[in-house]
């Protein structure tokens, strides 16, 4: 297993796109978070915004790049036929998939940690200037506050789980463009369409079962209005990740490559 892991790490590290993508995940996530923290303002006491969530807004865009990195780690091999070379080196398919999942987890975990930490720092710095002050009833963003710590650490976990969903589904789908299309639809199109559902209970049910339910981990205020509690939301995403990987393992095990 360790040699398979080392090989996958070498593979990821020597793909020229990887470093740029990881850098872009960090830059985009922090950039969007900082922009949100600087532009969303609180004019008076009792404004409805959630400052921790604002500072972590970039995660919603960063996840698109996470999807691209995770998808290309397997679909590129399908497209070129390199998967056959990989499987001739590591014939145990479950082992190969596990190694890929661990390497993607490590890379996205590290990039996600930097991205989320940067977003938090930018929020802490910029939010008071946007009116999130003690006068308006907001403490300065701090990790010593349990909900803020949960939102921040949970955002890293969210990105990792999104990467695993992407890895699993693209292993099944094989084709790069189709995989990215499917994932972006799950992450952006479905939530958008859900907004258009008129029945409130249907809307709530849909919000509870899509992968983006995991974003509820970012909420620190008005938790009762969420479709799911923060950890339940991450749990739903976790089920997506496990389900995708199990499906990928079954398909990969059975398929002629």
């Amino acid at each position: 297993m360790t040699v398979a892991l080392r090989a996958e790490w070498t593979k990821l590290r020597t793909s020229p796109g990887t470093a740029w993508l990881l850098l872009a995940i960090v830059a985009l996530t922090i950039g969007v978070g900082a922009a949100a923290a600087a532009t969303i303002t609180c004019g008076a006491a009792g404004c409805p915004e959630d400052p921790a969530k604002i500072s972590l807004t970039g995660v919603q865009l960063g996840q698109a790049l996470v999807v691209i990195l995770a998808v290309s780690s397997i679909s590129g091999e399908h497209a070129t036929g390199m998967l056959r070379v990989s499987l001739s080196a590591v014939p145990n398919r479950l082992r190969l998939l596990t190694a890929k999942a661990l390497v993607v987890t490590g890379a996205i975990g590290a990039a996600g940690l930097v991205a989320v930490a940067g977003s938090f720092a930018a929020g802490r710095l910029l939010l008071p200037g946007s009116g999130f002050t003690e006068a308006h009833g907001f403490e300065r963003l701090s990790l010593s506050e349990a909900a803020v710590l949960r939102a921040t650490a949970g955002s890293v976990l969210y990105l990792v789980l999104i990467a695993l969903v992407a890895l699993g589904l693209s292993t099944v789908v094989r084709e790069t463009a189709a995989s990215i299309g499917l994932l972006l639809a799950l992450l952006y199109l479905i939530p958008l369409l859900t907004q258009a559902v008129s029945s409130p209970s249907w809307k709530r049910h849909l919000q509870q079962i899509t992968p983006t339910a995991g974003l509820s981990i970012q909420a620190t205020t008005k938790l009762s209005s969420l479709p799911l509690t923060p950890w339940q939301g991450v749990g739903v995403l976790g089920c997506w990740a496990v389900g995708s990987l199990v499906l990928a393992a079954v398909v990969l095990h059975r398929r002629d490559v």
């Binding site: 040699v3 398979a4 080392r6 090989a7 996958e8 790490w9 070498t10 593979k11 020597t14 793909s15 020229p16 796109g17 590129g76 091999e77 070129t80 036929g81 390199m82 056959r84 070379v85 990989s86 080196a89 590591v90």
Partner: peptide, 21 residues
């Protein structure tokens, strides 16, 4: 032709070597 075109030949051999220890 079953290799990732953007990786150098040496790095292609390197990950294969690592896979065998």
């Amino acid at each position: 032709s079953a290799l990732q075109p953007s990786r150098t030949a040496r790095n292609h051999l390197l990950w294969l070597a690592h896979s065998q220890g």
